[in-house]
Nucleic acid binder design. Sequence first.
DNA 1: CGGTGGATTGAGTGGCGTCAACCTGAGTGG
DNA 2: CCACTCAGGTTGACGCCACTCAATCCACCG
Lengths: 272, 272
Amino acid sequence: MRKAGRPAFPWQFAKPPVYDGLPQPPGRTPHATMTSPLILKLAQRDQLSDEERRLLEEAPSTVVEYEAGQDMVCEGDEPAHSSLLLEGWAMRNKTLKNGARQITALHIMGDFVDLHAFLLKPMDHTVTALTRCRVALVPHETLKDITERHPHLTRVLWLNTLIDGAVHREWLLAMGRLSAAGHLAHLLCELFLRLRGVGLTEGQGFPFPLTQAVLADVLGLSAVHVNRTVQELRREGLVTWTNGAVTINDWERLAARAEFDPTYLNITLHPR
Amino acid sequence: MRKAGRPAFPWQFAKPPVYDGLPQPPGRTPHATMTSPLILKLAQRDQLSDEERRLLEEAPSTVVEYEAGQDMVCEGDEPAHSSLLLEGWAMRNKTLKNGARQITALHIMGDFVDLHAFLLKPMDHTVTALTRCRVALVPHETLKDITERHPHLTRVLWLNTLIDGAVHREWLLAMGRLSAAGHLAHLLCELFLRLRGVGLTEGQGFPFPLTQAVLADVLGLSAVHVNRTVQELRREGLVTWTNGAVTINDWERLAARAEFDPTYLNITLHPR
DNA sequence: CGGTGGATTGAGTGGCGTCAACCTGAGTGG
DNA sequence: CCACTCAGGTTGACGCCACTCAATCCACCG
């Protein structure tokens, strides 16, 4: 897999890192900045009270790191905590007996990769790090406490899992009814908005640390065809795609190619 | 669409109907039997207290009927209630500009078709009746009350939406990495277990009121190819498929064809 | 008895898969 | 400093799965 020790994609570590990894210092930890990407994400959907922010900030018990390619949770596991992605990219994936793999979700900073594992046990899929990842572990006991005593925050966390579902539905549409190029264009549009939501874009560009083989498992295509599809979007002048970074040159035409409508991402302030 | 006045699929109405439609009698209504399919479904995942059962029984404000083909909720709507399916089949679907349609979920008795609309607004997809449907409407205010005062019931309802998500992921896998026949086999396995969960199977058989054109929009295929795929499963002796009903002749081989593993349906009693 | 929705069948096409080779850049060790 | 390795991207040849268009069949119904 990827060599450790040096970040694979420099800009991915552009933000000053808050933690330098394990072990955690006991006592007062700078939780405030730690879960901020999640708070950032949720606060775009509904207002959070100071207490709710504090609860989220104090929710993680530890922070762990994974190397690219490492599994965070495996199919069949019944983890006692959920993983909040602080840095890096991760995926949910399932594998068939013949080795074919389907990636059912991509996750970035601020995503609660397996929040659903709080209630949905055992895991029906594996979660794997795509790059080096820094992850905050939130004990299910803490989540249970929140559901017992903080109904509004519970609803916001529930919403968070519902958005995952909405993304799944959009992927089903793209997979079933769009051409390969449309599907890829759709994915790029979605990732751009999600990355921008946590401040990981620069202008129209964003880091894109997936190999074409991984991308194939996202799109349900072969790696070879992904390559040709990428070239198609390049040839049409829609994107610039250097290894590790994508720039959207023509948002309008790219979104049109994908029939992209961001409604499903629910990036709307709304009392829940 | 389908003619009203007579049930399209007799066995679908085999259970004695509890309600004879609108309007609702005021005062004491036989709620107990009305929401029983939902309670049946949830109670397979976690124990429900008597109070929780009562809350569910009293949750619906009204019962409405839809003809086959009628939209219950449209993309862009912000409904003030969620629909609990008491009888009939429904789907969630999205349509592209060129008219291509993808069905992202199928729903049967006991399914909370758009429970996610409680928090996820506006709707990112349309919900449409596939057969004549009887639906209990649960006001979002009632749901909010439940989340404010009944944490465990809230978690069980949350779980219900998480299972929808798990099904979405399984469909993504089937769509992306299974052959047409495998995908169809997978769908049949899933539907069999879900229908059995609410008592709608008879032996290895179950009602299947979808046309091959609708099935095509579920599987992301063309209607013609669905036809050929159905014939393939028939020829292999896996299923008997008369119009309106399917019988699984060889569960083992059908499940093997689909690499079907029911874990994702979470049909396990588990404290949540 | 014609109309209609749905299932079925055939012929021709094309998108995407498979296999296999080759290229490139970055690490690595001599 | 230069082979060597290896992961990942690129390209070509070829084949198949699934699509499209179109005709036919069938059951049901008015």
